[in-house]
Amino acid sequence: MPNLFTAQARARRRTIIPGFGLTTGFTLAWLSLIVLIPLSTVFIRAAGMGLPEFLEVGFSPRAIAAYKVSFGTALAAALINAVFGMIVAWVFVRYEFPGKRIFDALIDLPFALPTAVAGIALASLYASNGWIGQLVEPLGIRLAYNPIGITIALIFIGLPFIVRSVEPVLADLSRDAEEAALSLGASPLQVFVRVILPALLPALLTGFALALARGVGEYGSVIFIAGNMPFKSEIAPLLILTQLEQYDYAGATAIAVVMLIVSFAMLLFINLVQSCSRRRVDA
């Protein structure tokens, strides 16, 4: 429908609001200066290295171990958060209980509390002489200075992403289908799996991917509780910093490029999930 399209375009162009050139120009210039040009330097530097060297430093045994730690712990934390975050969202939407407002406000704490503060607090809480760490120490379980500690920090960081993604969808969910299923004899578990979960899935996937992306790149809350042993509990962002401190710019650049590509892929995935679910809602 080319006619309709040009008519619309003409109508849009006719708006009398000023400042299009100024605001768009400023937005593009500032975006390029602060974000796009600096980010592209990493890729240009990496391209200058040549593929063999890039692969050698970007996928050295120590780097691969660091990716495994970063992705493994971020994945574990996001999975744990998906389960418990959904329970938290469910409880907030469906039930009333004393102190609900305070607990609800507390969910956003990881967005407001500086990561370094979270890091030292979690480390002292879960270390073997800490309030929680000493409870499990007699069982021979160590919660800090190993990948379990990293996972704990990433649970802290990722929880609000799941809760705040799922909560609004759950609140808008009509109870008719649920009640119909229950009255037709479905068990509560069947209702959850067949009726509620499919409706929540896009929001849950978005929250999961956001938490995962954040967890993979997280630094401040992790390093205090991680132990930071190469090959065991060294996360990829820390390895970048270590290489940089040793003036190994090539190593730092290559690892950064690998991480950037992965986070762009996850961003693309989030956008896809959101546009798919929007299309389904619109249809």
């Binding site: 330097t41 990493v42 990829a236």
Partner: peptide, 12 residues
Amino acid sequence: SVSPVVAGLVYV
């Protein structure tokens, strides 16, 4: 979606 450490690195 960029790790804070990578954000610092690009300016270095």
